[in-house]
Structure formats: C-alpha cells, structure tokens
Design a protein around this nucleic acid. Structure first.
Length: 210
DNA sequence: GACCAGGCACATC
DNA sequence: GATGTGCATGGT
C-alpha cells in the first residue's frame, strides 16, 4: 500500500488489554490522545485498569483520577456505564463477545449512554477485533477530498462505503484508519488538491493508466 | 485568547 | 432534519 510506504505502520490502538483500549476510546472523545493517555496512565498507576476495580469505584473518585482527559465528570459516567455493561453481559471478558453477531453487538454497544458510533466502532475494531471501519472526521475528510464520498457525508454514510470497498479484514481496517488519520491531520489540511495522491489507487484497487 | 483535539447527548428551531 | 450548546482539560 502506498500510504503504508509513506507513513509507516501506525501501531494503533495503543493499549495492553481490550479493556484498556475501550477505556481509551471513551477517554479520547473530543480530546487529544496525549491527554487521554495521561488519564490511562493515572488509572494504571492505581491499578484500576480492570472492569471490576473500575466498577467498584465511586463516580466522583473515578472522575478525579481521569481528570487530565478533560470532561471528566461526563467521562466517569460513561466509563462506568460501559464497564457495568461489560460485567453484566460478558463477565468483563471480551472474548465472550466472539459468538455474538456483529450487528446486534454493535447496537448493544450503541445503547450504552455516552457511546456513539465512533466510540462503539473503535471498541469493536480495536478491542474486539471485528471488521468495522471507524469512519471518523479524518477518514471522512480524506475520502471527501478525493470525491469518493460527499463533502458533508455523515458517519453512517462513510462507514458502509469503506466497508463495501475494502476486504473485510480487521487488520487492514486498523492500519488504514490510523493512516487516514495521519494523512487527514497533516497532508490533506495543507495541500489543496490531491489528484495525484496514491490514496485513490489504494481505495479503488487499481492504478491509473500512465 | 482563540482554537483545536481520535464525541456525544440534549434542547431548540 | 439541521443547528447550537454543555462538557473541560492541555497544547499551539
């Protein structure tokens, strides 16, 4: 892949366990990753990166620990909701989700207050390993720039487009999403036109005639 | 001091 | 259905 050659492997999503990855997905909402990482580090220092320990914590105390991530009262509530869902349905074990059909697992995640499509899909892809594309603002920006989707395309428009145009491979989704974020953050912001960008060849699965 | 960063829920028009 | 606002920190 041309993007891979240019930007290198991105090694997303940082996290030692599926639970830690899911915690990161909530903590990074509308927040720079570096601040979410601080909050995760604070949780790790207190040995709180397990569902049972988080669930046992009063909301106010959890909020204090994750303060560096910003919107901490909100995120403490969301983190507890996710953690309780995980414990009640799967005993805190991500591998028990393996038998659940993807659509029902996804809608079950979306029913948790505080989990929108992007957070739910990040958990599905990066923590559970399901083939769901995280069609975040960067991915949509890059696709729109190449007129592969409309400039105002919504999340739920871009995600099926990506999933339909790519092999259904979680490892590929993982790396490409990370690469699209890297491109969307830097290159596509500063370069007005991308007619020659190799991205479109990757996405369309063919190279243009030269 | 404004703006942004790997969103979401809720109110209002 | 589109638009606006609160949440809140830390970096540029």
């Amino acid at each position: 892949m041309a993007l891979l050659d240019r930007y290198g492997r991105q090694r997303w999503w940082p996290g030692r366990t599926p639970y830690e990855i899911s915690v990161g997905a909530v903590l990074t909402q509308h927040t720079a990753w570096v601040n979410a990482a601080r909050a995760i580090a604070a949780l790790r220092t207190r040995r709180l990166l397990t569902p049972k320990r988080v669930a046992a914590l009063p909301e106010g105390e959890l909020a204090r620990v994750i303060r560096p991530a910003g919107t901490y009262r909100l995120k403490a509530r969301r983190l507890l909701a996710l953690t309780r869902w995980l414990l009640e349905r799967y005993g805190g074990k991500f591998d028990r989700m393996g038998e659940v059909a993807l659509p029902s697992l996804r809608s079950s995640l979306l029913a948790i207050p505080g989990l929108g499509p992007e957070t739910a899909d990040a958990i599905l892809l990066y923590a559970v390993g399901r083939p769901v594309f995280v069609a975040d603002v960067y991915a949509r920006r890059v696709l729109a720039r190449h007129r592969l989707i409309g400039p105002q395309a919504a999340y739920e428009e871009a995600r099926p487009w990506l999933e339909a145009h790519l092999p259904s491979d979680p490892a590929l989704f993982n790396e490409l999403h990370a690469l699209l974020v890297a491109v969307g953050k830097s290159h596509c912001r500063t370069v007005p036109r991308c007619e020659e960008c190799p991205l479109r060849w990757d996405l369309r699965g063919r190279r243009p005639a030269t």
